[in-house]
Design a protein around this nucleic acid. Sequence first.
RNA 1: GUUCCCAUCGUCUAGCGGUUAGGACGCGGCCCUCUCAAGGCUGAAACAGGGGUUCAAUUCCCCUUGGGAGCACCA
Length: 470
Amino acid sequence: MTQTQKPVLRFAPSPTGMLHIGGARTALFNWLYARHTGGTFLLRIEDTDRERSTPQAVAAILGGMRWMGLDWDGPEVFQAARAARHREVADALLAAGRAYRCYATAEELSAMREEQKKAGKPMRYDGRWRNRDPEEAPPGAPFAVRLKADDSGETIVHDLVLGDVRFANDQLDDMVLLRSDGSPTYMLAVVVDDHDMDISHVIRGADHLNNTPRQLQIISAMGWAKPAYGHLPLINGPDGAKLSKRHGALAVEAYRDMGYLPETMRNYLLRLGWSHGDDEIIPTAQAIEWFNLESIGKSAARMDYKKLDNLNGHYIRATPDDILAAEAVAFLERENPPRILSTTARARLLSAMPSLKERAKTLVELIQGADFLYTDGVRDLDAAAQKLLPPEARGLLAAALPALAATDWSAPALEAAARTHAEAHGLKLGQVAQPLRAALTGKASSPPLFEMLALLGREESLIRLRAYAD
RNA sequence: GUUCCCAUCGUCUAGCGGUUAGGACGCGGCCCUCUCAAGGCUGAAACAGGGGUUCAAUUCCCCUUGGGAGCACCA
């Protein structure tokens, strides 16, 4: 086949659900390899299952890809639109004697499987129409087209990540190419499309490994060139079991809503199954430079949210303040009902960002910890803050107020005043600072207190502090 | 059941015959400190089991065990 010098990769999800973490990683690896080699990355929507494919799912997949920052080259290909070409190939196979018509009915086939199962035999098509004279066909009856697969020898998959995997041909049955309604099956469609799209590398989930020898047989029946295959180990949930809705089989956009950054997701997913020595923090630009197929691991991995959090914290800290502030604002505006921030609130958020981002693992956490900056007035105390403001503490707070009020209300001056006041009364700074923090922010922990006092300004700060001083 | 894949700390992993088995997350301790983080130092923590091959196996081979995936006129 016309083997272009540059690799051509593809991501081929079926639009029957969201783009989840496993699909996202498959897409990422394909994308990275294409970008690393200067090749092409195509997107093909495998919607041959008309019953289960939905436009919503297509939109969700495209949206997920965009959010992940995985851009594809050229327009996306819809597989169902190519059905005529798939049928053409099936007809060619039929004409060449490499496929045949099978008149077995669905009931007949399920009865066959029942029997095989009962007899403890492997369940596969028994080839009942393989060598039968077409003359015997019930006239006008619907038929499926099956591949006349090799029934001896073996098919070897030279897998890029797993190495050579051998399958004995006598255990591969004659799969359906065209359903009795004339529609092509996935098995036929992938092969034809990969060929027509000039795909050089098929990098997909390991759940497809067992399909590969069958696809290889179609390819050889057509006399086409084989693409290189690489099967990625699957991702399991935190408990080692299959990914489920509960833990990880979430749409990638759910990760956005949980406050993770796309860069975090790319780095995390990359490290799930691929490594470069001891390196952990691998920004995308570096990943493109380093990515290779040889370093893909063979074993399945599990999701680890703790590590995801840690990585996200890293990338949050590495993100410029103005971008982060804009993200935070966008997040708040996406709330229901949307929270629209005043100019003052935005300015505060931006000024406090260096301190805020230092202590947030997710955007959600960042926003929650900053509410005292974008809402005004006396605070409601959370449980921990209440503990910091028993009557004695309120007395201390009241006693400290005049000293603070007398300063020029800058962070250094406020801190100096608080220290002097504490020393004069034989108190530690913390004993004075904690009640102040609780009254000012409503929380027991916050960015540096004196910075926050300065940021909120004298008037707003005193309103909050006086409310808990007596 | 059957076919195929996988197997190093709890988790993600480095290792590609000879290492005090390394790193990261998480966990414990210490330092820093107005809180929480961040940061620094530090501790505990792994080669699933059994046979081979070899002067030497975490590393190569086989078996067992344990996980996982496929076995549709789904993709």
